[in-house]
C-alpha cells in the first residue's frame, strides 16, 4: 500500500511540484493545505504518513502548525520545505518537532532521500 502524504503550502505551484515528485515515487497525495490552520485540521482528519510543510503560510505559519500537530501527535513525520535565508526558521521548526527539511530548488533525489529518512525514523 502506498504511503499517504499531506502537502502544506500556500502556493499551488509548490504543491504541484512537490506533489509530482512524491506521486512519481509512488506516494499517495491524500490532502493539500494552504494555511497552517488547514494543515492542522487536515492532519487530524487524514492522519497521513508524511506531511510536507511550508514555513510561511497565511493564518498560521508552518512552525506553529508543527507545534500544534506534534502537541497531539509527537511522532508525526513532518518535512519542512525551506526557501533561501531561512536557516534560523528551519532550526526553530526542527526544535518544534519537524523531522527533516529540504531546500529549494528541489532536487527530486534529495526530496526523496529526506522523505525516506523521515519515514524510516
Amino acid at each position: 500500500m502506498s504511503r499517504t502524504v499531506l502537502i502544506c503550502d500556500d502556493a499551488i505551484f509548490m504543491r504541484t511540484m512537490v506533489g509530482d515528485i512524491l506521486q512519481q515515487a509512488g506516494f499517495e497525495i491524500v490532502g493539500e493545505a494552504e494555511t497552517g490552520v488547514q494543515a492542522v485540521e487536515k492532519f487530524r482528519q487524514l492522519q497521513p504518513d508524511l506531511v510536507t510543510m511550508d514555513i510561511v503560510m497565511p493564518d498560521m505559519g508552518g512552525i506553529d502548525a508543527v507545534r500544534e500537530i506534534t502537541k497531539t501527535h509527537p511522532s508525526a513525520r513532518i518535512l519542512m520545505c525551506s526557501a533561501m535565508g531561512q536557516q534560523a526558521l528551519v532550526v526553530e521548526a526542527i526544535q518544534a518537532g519537524a523531522k527533516d527539511f529540504v531546500v529549494k530548488p528541489f532536487q527530486p533525489s534529495r526530496v526523496l532521500e529526506a522523505v525516506q529518512r523521515v519515514l524510516a525514523a
Binding site: F13, M14, M57, A83, K104, P105
Partner: peptide, 12 residues
C-alpha cells in the same frame, strides 16, 4: 507573505 511565496517559488 506574497513576497516570501514568490521567493520560495523562484527558488524552486
Amino acid at each position: 507573505r506574497a513576497t516570501h511565496t514568490i521567493k520560495g517559488m523562484a527558488g524552486a
